[in-house]
């Protein structure tokens, strides 16, 4: 499980989180100067009235360019995409992102499960799902879908999470490929698709 195995062939890393995940993200994102040809998609629970604050903050913290998410925007490698507030974020076979305003799932829109399941359908084994801190059970079913489709699953070590409920719930209901603290998640992301160890 926790061996030093490099994941290759990854097209998308999708990161989900809720309460406390912003703290992890603002530690991780500034350190990612370059990635090896995959897109990063971030799905974080947020207030429906927060139209732009999260995007602005993460754009400020990120070295990679954050592409604004609009309906049917192409999903390109080496960019960051953030699920907008008050929409579910979905993945189309044509490698575009699409949006949906249907009912909340796990009291959330965007819901992590919805995006993880949709990404798993399109990207299968070229997908990595990372679940961060949170106090809601959203994300667990999504990680199961990613694993079932052949993707790789990473869960933040609950001991390192501000809110351990969400990663704990995942660990109780499935076997992640990796359980990592914040610094290890950063190193993991940087290692993906790299050939040298």
């Amino acid at each position: 499980m926790e061996e030093n195995k490099i994941i290759t062939g990854c097209k998308v890393i999708i990161i989900g989180g809720s309460a406390g995940s912003l703290y992890a993200l603002i530690q991780i994102l500034p350190e990612i100067v370059k990635v090896n040809s995959f897109a990063i998609v971030i799905v974080v629970h947020r207030k429906s009235s927060d139209e732009q604050t999260l995007e602005d903050l993460l754009t400020l913290k990120s070295k990679l360019e954050v592409k604004p998410v609009e309906d049917k925007v192409p999903l390109l490698p080496n960019y960051i995409y953030i699920a907008p507030s008050n929409y579910h974020l979905l993945f189309e076979k044509e490698e575009t992102l699409s949006l949906d305003t249907s009912e909340k799932i796990n009291y959330s829109r965007p819901s992590i499960d919805v995006s993880f399941e949709s990404a798993a359908e399109v990207y299968g084994s070229s997908l990595i799902g990372i679940l961060l801190s949170g106090s809601n059970k959203d994300g667990t079913l999504g990680l199961q879908a990613i694993q079932a489709a052949g993707g790789t699953v990473v869960v933040q070590n609950p001991l390192s999470a501000e809110m351990p409920f969400m990663p704990n719930n995942a660990i109780l209901n499935m076997t992640p490929d990796f359980i990592l603290n914040v610094q290890e998640i950063l190193e993991f992301i940087l290692s993906v698709n790299s050939t040298e160890i």
């Binding site: 579910h88 979905l90 993945f91 189309e92 699409s98 949906d100 249907s102 949709s118 359908e121 399109v122």
Partner: peptide
């Protein structure tokens, strides 16, 4: 219709 959403529905 957008397939991802329709399929979920």
């Amino acid at each position: 219709y957008s397939k991802a959403s329709l399929k979920r529905r």
